[in-house]
Amino acid sequence: MLKMHAVETGYGDAQALFGIDLTINEGEVVTLLGRNGMGKTTTIRALMGLLPVWKGQIEFNGQDLTRAPPFLRAQAGIGLVPEGRQVFPTLSVEENLVATAASRFGNKRWHLDRIWQVFPRLLQRRNNRGNELSGGEQQMLAIGRALMTNPKLLILDEATEGLAPLIRADIWACIAALKAEGEAILVIDKTIQALTNLADRHVVIEKGRVVWTGTNEEFLADHSITDRYLHL
């Protein structure tokens, strides 16, 4: 479904990615692992069109998106839950969701009622503004907002960062439920424990390069990966 091939990019003159390969198939949950500053979020930014791709290719469902602006990538079916949540502060919860509703793309798997079902908490807060929500609620809203675009691939960048353990568990349960429905998901997170319960495949990035990739079983069997690339 998604094929990133030898993607290079950077900020200004500073190259950050040195040829990232990333493939995600239908219904697959893939993680992007690596220490801070290794290029995980940069990969997402390149994938979403927020950084120009210097070299390489990005293909999504057979469509070449390498040079496409962000809005076309979203319309093609890539839904991003960004780091830091970034809900619209002056829009109400409902407006945050409705403004982004993607009935305009034809596919209507996700609609307001279903979001309320998955996140009853948001229904209680539907008339509150984005900046009146707690961190956990904002995270739910950010996920709900991405789902309302009816993505074929959902990207979660640090979706549980800075949240209380109970709320984290809620978010993980929600992600598991999405997986059960066959949603393809790309996750970046620091809680490896939770990721190994969920993921099909892992991709480890170091210094802008993919240094390891394999299935969840292979990852669990080889402790040296965690020691080498992930522990501080």
Partner: peptide, 24 residues
């Protein structure tokens, strides 16, 4: 209407609105 909300959301965070599929 959606038009106004998208315009207002773009004021808050234009990049976010782009990644949600709108040509801001």
């Amino acid at each position: 209407a959606r038009f106004g909300r998208v315009l207002l959301g773009s004021r808050d965070n234009a990049v976010r609105m782009e990644t949600l599929g709108y040509d801001v």
